[in-house]
Design a binder for these strands. Structure first.
Lengths: 343, 343
DNA sequence: GTTCCTTTTGCTCATACTGAGCATTTCTGA
DNA sequence: TCAGAAATGCTCAGTATGAGCAAAAGGAAC
């Protein structure tokens, strides 16, 4: 294909962890700070070396071909040794292998592939160590949090940009295609908001030049907006394509909680129904009808009362519940198939 | 970790295609014949060289690091050039990277990773070329096809093996754990059959030593059953871990048709509702209630009548329908969320 | 202690969706 | 012309869902 100068091209494979926890009612992701321009592979590294700005990045580790028996075991071990975190639920998310996702490939560097994993850890896990920190997921996707109602950002910033983009199509067919993509992704045209299309929306914004990462592709600044203003509007950029990976992870979790009881990985052993509901709301990004949520998980056999009470609720004490594992035997797809949104 | 002799270990990355079509009411997968012991990477190859038996394998191609911009584009191109097939729907399935999935790794060969893709092609696509052939998917998973009722194989062969395996647990806790796995996977204990747990079931059978591939792991033949008898009961083996990959693909499709209109990728532009239903049934592996299926896709806005008629039905002519694309704008997850099974 | 506020919990009710089956229509072939 | 086959139309009970009212059970202020 394209002729590159330099040594024979090669492939490097890394493991990538999207580690999600829930604290203070916010979904959080474990990030590290990476100096701009650092290589994509190689360990959870702190603010070592490098000259550029510091960007948030997902922890990325090398894959030792002579190491663990499976990729998942390798990931678990590598996370344990570098952060001290013991991962609970782990699933493979996606493998990212676009060319030039590590810009050093331009200069003859290897093609860098990342096998990304999604991991959930209980909220009590300590942050321990290094330059790792828990960041709110919605910091990077402010348009995905509808818990306080439809985010202003959408009508004030995104919708106009979508409108300009639609109008700029080269012909009616392309315009129609763009209109459909905008409508499906961002629920313009009165359609429903689909919380699971996180990746689709991020990639659409990228194509529009409305996320800070887009400016890296040598594109001209989009219609009168600087990179700083972009970050202020649609969230800070992350290193490499890590925001894309995080978007894929959020979409995956949102889908998963509906048909697998993964939400229980993120709450303590015993919990009140309100806490459980808030956990679901935090991930789904929408508020739910309290009584119906209670009916759903209770009559659905997902939880059982422990008999205990949580006294300090500010009102009537709340009963404590635990996950009822037997549900796995009874229902094919036990999850919290979201009840009505609250507004 | 483990100390291997020989040169520094390295990693090889390949692309793997599970290409599914629907012909004669059967879901089919494109396979190639591979002499046992051939290397896992490198091209869709025919019956060239090698001395051993011929095994069915999934087409596997190399990844050129300096090639296409994305992995998906690389896959499309490679399939097009080697088979002439123009893929329609394509999605990344999973990345397989267990150690020793290519047995040559034992002798110092590289760790072989495969990024597997799931692709759907219309039924009219020609088989063209080489040693590629369309195989019935259920040839490899006879316990997954419930269209003629609960497969005999389950009660006559699998359930007894599960029973022995449960009893052989080392302690009560392990026994309970095994019992749960068996119940969830194979709907023993009266629970529901979950058509999407294809991979889980295959891996369980593998662990039981009840699929032919298990014998490759230097395990002793399981309680009085030879490898040939195994293949006759639970289907022929495939090369490497390709049957595992195919299992993952079948499970993924079964899940997907419920919430995305992918079934229309496998059916002609115009179709009768019975044909559409049979397509769904073929993939889901269960029979559906005809009138309710009709109601579901019709009132769900998934299809619209073209006005045409299909005369030779053996009875009253059937109306022709087409996929109604506008549904994407109206519903968040349009699919054929399966109506009641027929029996 | 009484009152107000807050939160949990219980319950109702209309509507939509699902599983199941009966009945009618419209063709082909004997 | 009649029997058979398949498509199509329709009903009906049971269940699930969206929405909201109301009682119960605590704490805090007075």
């Amino acid at each position: 294909m394209s002729a590159m100068p330099g040594p024979a091209p090669s492939i490097v494979v890394g493991l990538n962890a999207v580690i999600i926890a829930l604290t203070e009612g916010q979904p959080r992701v474990l990030t590290v700070s990476l100096p701009e321009g650092a290589p994509i592979e190689g360990g959870l590294r702190g603010r070592e070396g490098g000259g550029g700005r510091l960007l948030d990045a997902l922890p990325t580790g090398p894959l030792d071909p002579a190491g663990d028996r499976t990729l998942e075991l390798a990931l678990r071990r590598w996370v344990r040794t570098t952060t001290g975190l013991e991962l609970g639920y782990v699933e493979q998310l996606y493998t990212f292998g676009d060319r030039f996702r590590d810009p050093r490939e331009q200069g003859g560097g290897p093609r860098v592939m990342s096998v990304a994993y999604l991991a959930l850890v209980g909220e009590s896990q300590p942050t321990q160590g290094l330059a790792a920190r828990w960041r709110s997921v919605y910091r990077f996707f402010p348009w995905e949090d509808w818990r306080g109602g439809r985010p202003r950002l959408i009508d004030e910033h995104i919708a106009p940009a979508l409108g300009r983009w639609i109008e700029a199509a080269v012909n009616p067919a392309a315009r129609h295609h763009r209109r459909v993509r905008a409508a499906v992704g961002f629920a313009t045209a009165g359609g429903p908001w689909d919380g699971e299309r996180v990746l689709e929306r991020y990639e659409l914004l990228f194509e529009l030049g409305q996320v800070a990462e887009a400016a890296r592709e040598a594109a001209p600044a989009p219609a009168g907006v600087g990179q700083g203003a972009l970050a202020a509007a649609t969230g800070p950029e992350m290193a490499f394509d890590h925001r894309r990976i995080l978007a894929a992870a959020l979409g995956r979790i949102r889908a998963k909680i509906r048909y697998r009881p993964v939400i229980f990985e993120l709450v303590p052993e015993e919990f009140t129904l309100l806490r459980l509901q808030q956990a679901v709301e935090a991930l789904a990004g929408v508020e739910l009808h309290k009584q119906n949520f209670r009916r759903l998980v209770g009559q659905g056999g997902l939880v059982e009362a422990t008999g205990g009470l949580e006294p300090r609720t500010g009102g009537r004490p709340a009963a404590l519940f635990r996950f009822r594992r037997e549900v796995l035997l009874e229902r094919p797809a036990p999850g919290v198939g979201l009840p009505a949104s609250r507004r």
